[in-house]
């Protein structure tokens, strides 16, 4: 006993979150940069109303289509609106849609995946055949069909994207639930007479959290990108709200030769945010999966 005790690792000096962040920076520097960039955009979006130098719909026809300068960092558009301010508010909309839709998607994935994986049998069979049927349709086709029926708007987009990604993602949750269900500690809990809810909350959910966290981060990127795609097609959040996708398709495309910054600003933001969240998600997956530990 005492021998074994002395062999225990020294207790960590930091809390688990600090220790994890340090490990992320040390082992996955690219992922850490991605995470930092994403946090930067997140706060830009959160405080867009405070930090944007001009109002998002504030027009100044005397300063139309101005190139980037000190007074307008990202230039102005055809109505003299400040592009930086619009991009910042666009970040806010992207983050709002991204987080809400990814949150809903993760919730749907957990509910379907846990029900399917834990109860198995006929429940599993029913849910999985439904998921199969759902996944046959191309995402965009389904989105366009639903949005044209229910109309564009933030709540509709969040619900549709949430369901779309949630149902597909339930497969991933199901797989890890099946793995955890077979662990002996789940078995032990059942043999001591634990109810299903107790087992789900204390044994299944905590052990699938790494998968859920990764699922959520990658879904944030995916929903932001899809929302931009929808706005580009005119099916997203309706104007005059300055979404990145809407800015690209509207002024960005029309004035591409007169003012390339009109397309560059939202396009670059979109690229950077999605790339950042994806490398961050990849790094999280590698760090949280014990099987990937030590590999690159």
């Amino acid at each position: 006993m005492t021998v074994a005790t002395s062999l225990l690792p020294a207790p960590a000096q930091h809390g688990p979150w600090v220790a994890f962040t340090l490990r992320l920076i040390r082992e996955k520097p690219l992922g850490a940069i991605g995470g930092a960039l994403f946090v930067l955009f997140f706060f830009c979006g959160l405080f867009a109303d405070v930090i944007s130098p001009y109002g998002m719909n504030e027009t100044n026809l005397l300063e139309r289509l101005q190139a980037p300068s000190f007074s307008h960092w990202f230039g102005t558009d055809h109505l003299g609106r400040d592009v930086l301010s619009r991009v910042l508010v666009g970040a806010q909309l992207s983050m709002l849609v991204g987080f809400l839709a990814a949150g809903l998607a993760t919730l749907v994935s957990i509910v379907l995946g846990v029900a399917s994986g834990y109860f198995g049998g006929k429940v599993d069979m029913l849910i999985q055949r439904f998921v199969d049927a759902w996944m046959i349709f191309p995402d965009l086709l389904l989105l366009i069909a639903v949005i044209s029926v229910v109309g564009a708007g933030i709540p509709q987009i969040v619900i549709v994207l949430g369901l779309l990604y949630g149902i597909a993602g339930s497969r991933i949750v199901r797989g890890s639930v099946i793995g955890v269900k077979e662990n002996m500690h789940t078995h032990a809990a059942r043999s001591m007479g634990a109810r299903t809810m107790h087992i789900l909350i204390r044994h299944i959910l905590p052990n699938i959290m790494p998968v859920v966290i990764v699922l959520f981060t990658t879904r944030v990127g995916a929903t932001i990108l899809t929302e931009a795609g929808l706005s580009f097609l005119g099916l997203g959040i309706p104007p005059p709200a300055p979404t990145w996708g809407g800015m690209l398709s509207g002024t960005g495309r029309t004035y591409m030769y007169l003012g390339p910054w009109l397309a560059l600003a939202p396009g670059l933001c979109l690229t950077i945010v999605v790339y950042a969240i994806n490398v961050y998600g990849d790094a999280l997956r590698d760090l949280l999966d014990p099987r990937m530990r030590g590999s690159r």
Binding site: N183, M184, H185, H187, A188, A189, S191, M192, R202, H203, P206, N207, M209
Partner: peptide, 14 residues
């Protein structure tokens, strides 16, 4: 009550 064979899998790591 039962004591299990696998001392690793039988305790919830979380």
């Amino acid at each position: 009550q039962m004591v299990y064979q696998d001392p690793f899998g039988s305790l919830n790591p979380r």
